[in-house]
């Protein structure tokens, strides 16, 4: 069964389309990233898939059910990592994780989950006293304690320092290694490249490109740009075979650079941030 299948999904707010007919599918056990600038419709999409928001059109199947009408048992099979909650500040990490485990028919061991997210030393600390990064680890713990088949992460590392982000990525990889299907949204290219097997780039409510981090947007057969300087001035050539171009250049060539477009180039082109 394909965990997530979306056909022609639409959502409008006051006449404007926030999601303008998107199609996507996420396979079992894969990490799929929805990449895009703020306001592209990523969060709205993920909230519809989570069952938090109603759609205005299209077909959506998450774990075989329509998230708009799915019930308790379906919710016990998904895990949602919230983005900005500040709840349960007066409870300890352990109390909270244990409590949420009690909602599920076959939860993970709360102590193991607390260790897995790196909060064993903070298990008895009040959540209010945790740092921002630790707070997000609690969110992850609560998202996975029910042993979900599918986990949703909406911009999980916004506001993290680089070290916390690396640790977080390791945590997501270990979840994926256990066979959990993961859908995450992000506006960080390096995050999508580091975690996702496949990704889709969303702009203005549409998916404008999809593929793997190394093939998306025609990356695999994109032309290289060769630039150099010689007596005649600065040269810039886009080519399929940089070697031929370099071999034909004159002997006074300096400042030679060969650049292949990377994910960032493709992304910036697609979102129109580059003239």
């Amino acid at each position: 069964m394909t965990p997530i299948e979306v056909h022609g999904l639409r959502k409008t707010y006051g006449g404007t389309a926030a999601i303008d007919g998107i199609d996507m599918s996420v396979d079992g056990g894969e990490v799929f990233a929805l990449l895009g600038p703020n306001g592209a419709g990523k969060s709205t999409t993920i909230e519809i898939l989570e069952g938090h928001r109603r759609r205005d059109g299209g077909d959506v199947r998450v774990l075989g059910e329509d998230p708009g009408t799915a019930g308790r048992r379906w919710r016990s099979r998904i895990g949602i990592v919230l983005q900005s909650a500040t709840d349960a500040g007066d409870l300890t990490v352990r109390e909270t994780v244990r409590h949420f485990a009690g909602y599920y028919p076959s939860p993970r061991d709360p102590e193991e989950v607390i260790s897995a997210v790196g909060l064993a030393a903070k298990a008895d600390a009040r959540i209010r006293s945790l740092s921002g990064g630790q707070r997000r680890r609690v969110d992850v713990a609560l998202g996975i304690v029910g042993h979900p088949e599918l986990v949703f992460l909406d911009e999980p590392t916004t506001g993290f320092d680089p070290e916390a982000r690396r640790q977080f990525w390791a945590l997501i990889r270990s979840l994926a290694a256990d066979g959990t299907t993961i859908l995450l949204t992000t506006h960080y290219l390096d995050e999508a490249a580091a975690l996702a097997g496949r990704l889709a780039i969303m702009v203005g409510g549409r998916i404008v490109a999809a593929g793997t981090p190394s093939t998306v947007g025609g990356l695999a057969h994109a032309q290289a740009t060769v630039t150099w300087r010689d007596g005649a001035g600065l040269h810039e050539v886009r080519t399929d075979s940089p070697n031929t171009v370099i071999a034909q250049a004159g002997p006074d060539m300096t400042d030679l650079q060969v650049r292949r477009p990377n994910l960032e180039d493709v992304y910036l082109d697609l979102i129109g941030a580059r003239s």
Binding site: G51, H52, R72, R75, I78, I80, L82, Y104, L142
Partner: peptide, 17 residues
């Protein structure tokens, strides 16, 4: 308060009724 701080949103994403 529960609606504002995310308590209800978090619960909505779990099997709790």
């Amino acid at each position: 308060v529960d609606r504002g701080d995310g308590t209800l949103k978090r619960l909505r994403g779990t099997p709790v009724t």
